[in-house]
Design a protein around this nucleic acid. Structure first.
Lengths: 212, 212
DNA sequence: ATCCCAATATGTACTTAGTACATGTAAACT
DNA sequence: AGTTTACATGTACTAAGTACATATTGGGAT
């Protein structure tokens, strides 16, 4: 995350940020599907090809932090307390992220707009589902590494899929709770309750594996 | 599934079937992404607009039986043995489908091509994920009906998501097992084993709900 | 049989995302 | 200063999907 001293890199990053800012603003204002790439290019004052140069797909301008999440999960499992089971490590991580109001798990007016924008676009929902599956794959591989098993270990695949399913429901329901109550604490409570409920099942189902 | 006596309907259905057949053949031969709608129209000897008339999206020509699955699940829960918990009903349904070599859960050369075709296309994988989520929603609503709860009941949402996650992993891993062993019985064994493993967790996690 | 209506098939024209490839331009390196 | 390289940009294209107009034909009414 350090800013490169290199002028060329700094310019490139500035261009990218300009595009991202323009795109984000337009998406929130008018909805993802009602903004064209040409309009984004015009708003960012760059050529249309420059946009595709930085963001291969239109959706990438909206979801530009998914790699951070993958890295966060990889690191959490890599540097985990050896006395703690991998699944338990991830449960506590979820608690911590919710507690710290991490940008990935937070309930604010901003996150509401974010969720609403996704919800109003089939394209964004499709991309969100794809990212969910990619994260599940990362977790599966990271889990298998914890146990010294093969990356395609069946138990790891099942554990990761169940975890991501649980977290997805937890996030969605928490956001809905926030929309109803406008209370971040209530939303957080919903989130951790569902995460814990799902994890209980996981601990029993995978009791005979090295993951719990 | 009765053939309508109506000539107009029969013609329409014949046109639709012709398009579907041509499309399926081409998709399997050359891969989904390397077939254009124009080519499908030409192969089926209809106009391009006729294709979009019957199948709003290109993917719909590939996945044209997902509504059957939704209906199957709805019916299974609606006409279930009242002495059996909903989640258990679905576990036994999965067993029965695998046992009967139902088209939805089967392991043959044909199903291999089907899976391989999906696997080689991002578009088809995206649609498969969307269908999975739609089925999860149907199961969630059907479950909540069993218990006389609201359709957006949190426990039903969690149960349905965990179920679909389990089934997805089970299907995927079973197909991989079949590809390695070429043995449908072995694949079926993998399938039911994962379904049972996932369901065990579900039964514990949702023990305090009317769904288990 | 004939006329009319409605469903279906089809054509035309358009929008938009995304790709391939060529080229201009300015930073970085020798 | 000259060369190389990375980035920005333009042109031209493909293909999915939409909007809307039109032709055709089966089915029902008189």
């Amino acid at each position: 995350m350090s800013i490169p001293t290199d002028l060329r890199s700094r310019k490139r990053l500035a261009t990218r940020q300009g595009i991202s800012n323009a795109a984000t603003r337009l998406f929130f204002e008018r909805g993802f599907d009602h903004v064209t790439v040409d309009e984004i290019a015009a708003a960012a004052d760059v050529g249309r090809m420059t946009v595709f140069n930085h963001f291969p797909r239109k959706e990438d301008m909206f979801f530009d932090r998914d790699e951070e999440v993958r890295e966060l999960l990889r690191e959490a499992l890599r540097q985990r307390d050896p006395g703690l089971a991998p699944v338990e490590t991830l449960r506590l991580l979820a608690h911590r992220l919710a507690e710290e109001q991490s940008p990935y798990v937070c309930f604010t007016a901003g996150s509401q707009s974010f969720v609403a924008t996704i919800d109003s676009s089939e394209t964004l929902k499709a991309r969100a589902r794809a990212i969910r599956d990619e994260i599940a794959q990362v977790v599966a591989v990271a889990l298998s590494e914890c146990a010294g098993r093969e990356p395609d270990d069946v138990d790891a695949q099942l554990a990761a899929s169940l975890l991501l399913a649980t977290w997805s429901v937890a996030l969605l329901q928490a956001h809905q709770a926030y929309r109803r109550s406008q209370d971040p604490a209530a939303a957080k409570a919903v989130f951790v309750a569902i995460v814990d409920k799902g994890t209980i099942g996981l601990n029993v189902a995978l009791a005979d594996t090295p993951y719990v």
